[in-house]
């Protein structure tokens, strides 16, 4: 710090000199810095992979058919879909769910919920398949998007999609969204005394439901997504091998039905009977033979290969029951 003898220098001069010093030494922040480099056209083109769902802007050249999409979907998507959830308490099925958005069990799919078709292209290209994002060609993405839209009856089976035809699709739930919520929609008042006459506990399941993880509840083998198919394929079974292996006496559906009814369908049903479940968890229902058969591979994954279900084994599924389920599924999950 400079010192100015106050006795000899007028105060105004002190201020003026100090001000000049500050400007010369510290400076102010400039209005422009210029630290980045100009992005070249080639760089911008390489990075520019976004597609605008609203307008379709950014959809690349190329095309894909529903038929090609089916082949790709079965090879690259079917192994996970159904199981790949975002964890928001619902199951992200890709098709169906129409008319369910106002129900107690909304099923939000591409067909029932997604407002814009180009978003499907953008997301598949950027993030799918889950274990190999960015691996699909533009034509493959068009084909898979076409197949998923066909599963939702939004394009015919002979459809071929490209930038123009994909952007032209009007999704059923296009007008289902209310935009931008900058003002509060709930208006409470901060009452301080005698705010209500009495209080009753309306939900106290948390203590008894038994789904809160504890320190022993989570093990690595509960991870589901592997992308590698069944853990024990046909090649794992030695020809004419051990008597313990699945290739033994057939398991009838009549043996399976009561297990699923008692251990699974108390929650996984259109109208769950288990206290606290007002709707089927993740939208998965195991309350009819057809539904059980359709979800056989999932049952195996969740309750046989892993013991992820029933959650906390709250319904007490036994190891013998799990083995029987696995056997029935390995034999083709026949219901007749």
């Amino acid at each position: 710090m400079f010192k100015f003898p106050k006795a000899t220098i007028p105060l105004l001069l002190v201020v003026a000199l100090a001000g000049a010093f500050v400007i010369a030494d510290a400076q102010s922040y400039p209005s422009h810095y210029g630290f980045g480099k100009p992005a070249t056209v080639a760089q911008q083109e390489a990075w520019n992979d976004d597609v605008n769902g609203l307008t379709g802007a950014g959809l690349p050249p190329g095309h894909g058919s529903v038929a090609a999409g089916q082949t790709l979907y079965e090879a690259k998507c079917a192994v996970c879909h159904g199981d790949f959830g975002e964890g928001e308490n619902r199951y992200p099925v890709l098709a169906g769910g129409n008319g369910t958005l106002t129900s107690a069990r909304p099923v939000k799919t591409v067909g029932s919920y997604w407002p814009y078709a180009p978003t499907l292209y953008d997301y598949i290209r950027r993030a799918m398949p889950f274990n190999a994002p960015g691996s699909l060609t533009n034509d493959q993405v068009y084909a898979i998007a076409a197949y998923v839209l066909n599963l939702n009856n939004l394009v015919p089976a002979n459809a071929v999609l490209d930038a123009k035809t994909l952007a032209a699709i009007k999704m059923p739930n296009r007008n289902g969204f209310i935009n931008e919520h900058l003002k509060p929609d709930v208006h409470a008042v901060a009452c301080m005394t005698n705010c209500k006459k009495s209080v009753t506990i309306t939900s106290d399941l948390a203590r008894t439901l038994g789904i809160t993880p504890n320190e022993t509840g989570s093990t690595p083998d509960e991870r589901i997504i592997t992308g590698s198919g069944p853990a024990a394929g046909p090649s794992a079974a030695p020809a004419g091998g051990s008597a313990k292996h699945v290739a033994s006496a057939p398991v009838a559906f009549s043996q399976i039905a009561p297990i699923v009814a008692q251990r699974c369908a108390v929650c996984h049903a259109a109208h769950p009977t288990e206290a606290g479940f007002s709707a089927a968890p993740m939208g998965i229902m195991l309350d009819t033979p057809a539904r059980i058969a359709a979800l056989a591979s999932k049952i195996k994954q969740q309750a046989v290969t892993s013991h992820r279900m029933p959650i906390g084994n709250m319904t007490g599924m036994t190891d013998k029951e799990r083995a029987l389920l696995g056997k029935w599924i390995d034999q083709g999950a026949k219901i007749h």
Binding site: D50, V51, N52, G53, L54, E86, E88, P92, L101, T102, P106, K108, V110, Y113, W114, P115, Y116, T119, L120, D122, Y123, A127, G176, F177, I178
Partner: peptide, 19 residues
Amino acid sequence: WMTREETSKYTDLLADGKA
């Protein structure tokens, strides 16, 4: 952009079916 994370996810479905 109406990305997947601001349409199919992170939107709040209301009782009347609008989100």
